[in-house]
Amino acid sequence: MRTPCAPVRDLLGTTDVESAYGVQRLIASERIAEGARIIGAKIGLTAPAVQRQFGVFEPDFGVLFDDMVFCHRQPVPWSRFLQPRVEGEIAFVLGRDIDHPGASVVDVLRATDFVLPAIEIVDTRIAGWDLTIVDTVADNASAGAVVLGTTAHRLVGLDLSRIGMVLERDGEPVTHGAGHACLGSPVAAVAWLAREMCRRGNPLRAGDTVMSGALGPMVGLDGAGRFRLRLDGLGDVEATIERD
Rank of each mutant, 00 (worst) to 15 (best):
M1D: 14
R2Q: 12
P4L: 12
P4M: 12
R9K: 14
T15E: 15
A20E: 03
S29N: 13
G40E: 03
L45H: 02
T46E: 04
T46V: 12
P48D: 14
F54G: 11
G55W: 15
D60R: 08
F65N: 03
V69L: 07
V69H: 01
C71I: 05
S79C: 12
R80T: 10
F81N: 04
R85D: 02
E87G: 02
E87H: 06
G88A: 07
G95E: 13
D97P: 05
I98Q: 01
D99P: 09
D99A: 15
S104F: 06
V106A: 14
L109P: 02
V115H: 01
E120G: 02
R125L: 09
R125T: 10
I126P: 02
L131N: 07
D135I: 04
V137K: 02
A143S: 15
L148F: 08
L148I: 07
T151Y: 09
T151E: 12
H153I: 12
L155C: 04
D159S: 13
M165Q: 04
V166R: 06
L167I: 08
D170L: 06
E172H: 08
V174G: 02
V174I: 14
G177F: 00
G184T: 09
R195K: 08
T209S: 06
M211S: 13
S212T: 13
A214T: 15
D222E: 14
R226F: 07
G233C: 12
L234R: 01
G235F: 07
V237C: 01
E238L: 05
A239P: 01
I241N: 01
E242Y: 12
